[in-house]
Computed example of a mutant assay.
Amino acid sequence: MHPTSLAWRLHRLLVVVLVLGATVLVPTAAGATADAGGRHHAAQVAGWTPVPGPAQARSRPATVVYGGDLHLFVRGAGGSVRTNRYSSTTEAWSGWTTVPGAAGATSAPIATVYGGDLRVFVRAGAGTLRFNRYNLVTGEWSGWSTVPGSAGAASAPAVAVYGGDLRVFVRGVAGDLRTSRYTLVGDVWSGWSTVPGSAGARSAPAAAVYGGDLHLFARGAAGAVRTTRYTLTTDEWSGWTAVPGRAGATSAPAVTVHGGDLHLFARGAAGAVRTTRYTLTTQEWSGWSAVPGRLGAASGPAAVGYGGDLRLFVRGPQHRIYQHLVGPQSAQQG
């Protein structure tokens, strides 16, 4: 065989090998890849880790700890509610499934634990609120029901358990915040009423119990985050004020208690996530700072303490949900 002919054949063989190797992983949009079978895999982005599996998220996430596991919820296609569960014991996710029944969700979900059950709430058609209840012992969902009364909800709900009751909050059509209270003893709802004062809410609310009070938050004008506080012993609201500093919020806030402090989060400009922290002993806010990593969050955040870590979740590219572990030094001032 002529040497030139042999070299040509070797060159062609090398080209074929390189082409086949390049098709094993084909780049796709927004930081994901697809293998030879077309299965999409989300990539880690600067400290943000994708929750495994196709979330098909159409909303910001919600998260709660129940039965020793971390439960994650999102609104899916067709008004469904989808869920995934993480165990710190096995360090594994259960995989995404759909909560049974016709949720008819038109908002992000919210979840809490009350009366031994995990309870999920969503806004549905005509400004109503619907909820479903999961029991760990039976492993079954109760089915979707409607919160009684005229909620007039113009946002996703927020929930908190305080003073032995489950309290639900929504933004009304005029930027006010409306609330109803459920008491397990008697199985009765209080009916809807308006939180006092001028909330000026431009987003869904967020709620948490801290220092013996119920703290309520909402995004206000010019990207500010506004707050009011309810004290059970006096049965009074403190009045609406702005959380200090430049929040730059473009989403509803998220709030949780972890490590003795109240942690507040919101999506900022360019999909960044911003945070500030309130300490009861000093009665001071830490100041707003940016959570590291340029994921480009497509939703507001959700936050929860689990397994000793403060965990932050957002919807990212490709309708996936991403997680970030927030450490004491993980925020950037600005």
Rank of each mutant, 00 (worst) to 15 (best):
A218L: 01
A160V: 15
G143R: 10
G200S: 11
G163S: 04
T179L: 09
T233H: 06
V168C: 00
P205D: 03
G220Q: 13
R133H: 03
T227V: 15
S155H: 12
P196A: 08
S155N: 07
L136K: 04
S193D: 09
T234S: 14
S198K: 09
W237Y: 14
L216R: 02
A160Q: 05
T128N: 15
V168F: 02
A208V: 15
T233G: 01
V147F: 08
P205S: 04
G197E: 02
W237T: 07
W189P: 02
R202H: 15
A204S: 13
R133P: 03
R226H: 12
S180R: 00
A158F: 09
N135A: 15
Y134I: 07
F131V: 02
L136Y: 08
V137S: 12
A221I: 10
L136N: 05
V161R: 00
W141G: 11
Y182P: 06
G212R: 07
R229D: 03
R229W: 04
T138H: 11
G197Y: 04
A199W: 12
Y210N: 00
A221S: 15
W192G: 13
G186L: 09
A154G: 09
A199V: 07
F169L: 14
Y210I: 05
D187Y: 06
A199E: 05
V168T: 01
R171D: 07
G211W: 13
V185F: 09
R229S: 04
G143H: 11
G197D: 06
V137F: 08
L166P: 00
A154K: 00
T183D: 14
T234W: 13
S150R: 10
S142E: 06
A158M: 00
V168G: 01
W237M: 13
S198D: 14
G139H: 01
S155W: 14
H215Y: 10
A206P: 01
S190Q: 07
L216N: 06
F169M: 13
G149E: 08
R133T: 15
A158C: 05
D213H: 04
N135K: 10
R202L: 15
S145K: 10
T138N: 12
G186R: 02
W192R: 08
L129M: 06
R171A: 12
D187W: 02
Y162P: 03
Y162A: 00
R226T: 01
G200C: 09
Y182L: 06
F217V: 05
S190F: 05
A153K: 04
V195D: 14
R202N: 03
T227I: 12
V170S: 11
A204L: 02
S190M: 02
G143F: 14
G186I: 01
G212S: 06
G223S: 07
E236D: 06
R202T: 13
D187L: 00
V137D: 04
R167H: 11
D176V: 06
V161Y: 00
A153T: 06
T234Y: 04
W237A: 12
W141T: 14
D176S: 15
A206N: 04
A160H: 11
A208L: 05
G163C: 03
S190W: 01
F169Q: 07
D187P: 00
G175M: 14
A156E: 08
R130Y: 12
L129Q: 03
A158G: 08
V195Q: 11
V188K: 02
V185M: 01
T138Q: 13
P148Y: 12
V173F: 05
S203K: 10
F131S: 12
R167A: 01
A174H: 12
G191N: 01
R130I: 12
G143N: 08
